[in-house]
Design a binder for these strands. Structure first.
Lengths: 241, 241
DNA sequence: CGGTTCTTTGACGAGATTCAATGCCGGTGG
DNA sequence: CCACCGGCATTGAATCTCGTCAAAGAACCG
């Protein structure tokens, strides 16, 4: 669970007892293949899945069968934290790549959070930051054109990876297919492909398969209208809980 | 603050001491006119605005000057609850209509929540439900066409009003202009107007100025693909905190 | 009643989707 | 080791939804 401790410690400083309490949580670990459902819309889970390795995403379907992706997740993310206070899941969670999931009973999680206010505060911040990212996605899909939208998504993804200490700005790998980028940006796979080509023609990115390079970060950021304020990266010593 | 108590009591049952603690909060009330900024992006507020009367919305601008609205708010909503755990505001809050705002110091709010776990739980649910609504908006804007999008927004708005005990399904008034509906749905004002006309032609709504009638709710719901699951309306006796 | 804001409508253009075909890459089994 | 296969990526052409520009009409407010 060290990956979880690292994540939460970036949100609120944890003392040794906090870390020990997280390590003491009962959980089972399972390997999962790509594109597996972890939680389905309408489920009433009694456990909280935690992503230990690989990538995952939240999504839902509309009546005509189209899919919308709401967020991408990286190791350390608490995927089912909503169920601490809500009864049923209002969306689905799937793995994007092969990965590893820890499963923790919600009751044990609740008990631990009562004992460890700093961990509870870290999780509150996590939930609020995720909501902030949802708002940014609403803005991205609602008010930016295709090229800018895809660029913004790439900026966010790489920034979050760098902030979590895995990956560099100039050179990174994107785990999702163009179809999945489309489902996240409200476009079609075909159009995402064209927009990636356009970003390449504009020298904002270089790309071989799913390996991306951004040589001129400030130009990319400017083009995408990307301002990382909404990610609240420097929150660690934030407001007093 | 009774409007706040009513709201929170729908999210988690409050006992008389909980209610008294909310009433005992120190706050000042001010009348505000429509289109006034309550919180601006980047602000570091030390108080939490609470909407007592009228309507409000969250929004942000993109570089080209376009605006995206993230949510609409009704009396009883805690507008600055993010600032309990986040330092700066990542979006703006404006009044939609003339209204009344209560201002509560965050420190007093924090102290009260420590004493009153049931209130804290109600607020946790509120935050998670708002995040769920953000996800639904992502899906709405990303994967539904103009007519369905506007219809879904209307379904959500009226459903929330009915759930809060103010207004009826068949006949209601919408406080926002078509331009504001456009900013919320990722369309233009002109196109919203055409889509409203289309919904009228399809007999799904009847409309005189901002007064709407939905005579056939199930047809409207079906057309909009509206499933209120994501609003978690029946949460009051939800999972144990 | 006059000004302002909001709504409505038309004509035109741009951006995104759809359909369809081809090419590329990695994996699997003979 | 190589041929085959399936999923992804790429590209073109036609179509359609939605945006833009512009103008007129309706509702609202002082």
């Amino acid at each position: 669970m060290d990956v979880v401790i690292n994540k939460l410690d970036r949100l609120h400083v944890l003392d040794p007892d906090d870390r020990a309490a997280i390590r003491a949580l009962p959980y089972s670990v399972s390997r999962v293949k790509a594109q597996q459902r972890i939680v389905g819309t309408g489920d009433i889970p009694s456990t909280c899945p935690i992503l230990l390795d690989g990538f995952a995403f939240r999504s839902n379907l509309v009546t005509n069968g189209n899919r919308q992706i709401f967020s991408f997740h990286v190791p350390g993310d608490l995927l089912g934290i909503q169920q601490l206070s809500l009864l049923h899941a209002d969306h689905s969670i799937h793995t994007l790549t092969d990965g590893e999931i820890a499963t923790v009973p919600l009751s044990d999680l609740r008990a631990m959070l009562k004992q460890r206010p700093a961990v509870a505060e870290a999780i509150r911040r996590d939930v609020l930051i995720e909501a902030s990212i949802f708002r940014e996605w609403i803005l991205n899909i609602g008010r930016r054109d295709g090229a800018t939208r895809v660029a913004h998504m790439l900026c966010e993804f790489v920034t979050r990876r760098v902030a979590s200490g895995s990956g560099r700005l100039e050179r990174f790998e994107v785990p999702m297919s163009q179809e999945q980028i489309a489902d996240a940006t409200g476009l079609t796979g075909v159009h995402v492909n064209r927009m990636l080509k356009k970003l390449g023609d504009m020298k904002l990115i270089r790309r071989i398969n799913r390996h991306y390079e951004i040589s001129n970060w400030s130009a990319m950021q400017r083009f995408a209208g990307f301002d990382p304020l909404y990610l609240h990266l420097g929150i660690r010593n934030g407001p007093v809980a």
